[in-house]
């Protein structure tokens, strides 16, 4: 791409929309993941007992579903990003690429 094409793309409102939407989405999900993970680590560092709370009459503790839950949550979060990025965002990208050609 030459300088002129780059400048035109940067000024294209649809390009600006794509970049701002996608990076905002990416940063929000990153923040959510950090919050969940470091929240979990901080609970363990400061209040272990919370995760040792019994669920029901057996030996099952709160920590087990929380831990397994974070694993599942992580997978779902990546799934959410891929769904939107490979759908909505990629459609926007394709249109932009067509405009250039």
């Amino acid at each position: 791409m030459n300088e002129e094409a780059v400048r035109r793309m940067k000024e294209n409102p649809r390009y600006q929309e794509l970049v701002s939407k996608r990076s905002r989405f990416g940063w929000i999900l990153t923040a959510v993941m950090m919050l969940v993970y470091y929240g979990y680590i901080m609970i363990i560092a400061f209040d272990k007992e919370l995760l040792a709370i019994k669920l029901g009459d057996g030996v099952m503790t709160l920590g087990i579903p929380v831990g397994i839950g974070i694993i599942i949550f992580t997978v779902i979060l990546t799934g959410i990003y891929v769904r939107r990025a490979n759908g909505e965002f990629d459609e926007m990208t394709e249109e932009l690429v067509k405009e250039v050609k």
Binding site: M1, V6, M9, K10, Y15, L18, V19, R22, T93, L96, V97, V100
Partner: peptide, 8 residues
């Protein structure tokens, strides 16, 4: 940036 965002 344009290339990294659009893949062009």
């Amino acid at each position: 940036e344009v290339r990294s965002e659009t893949g062009i």
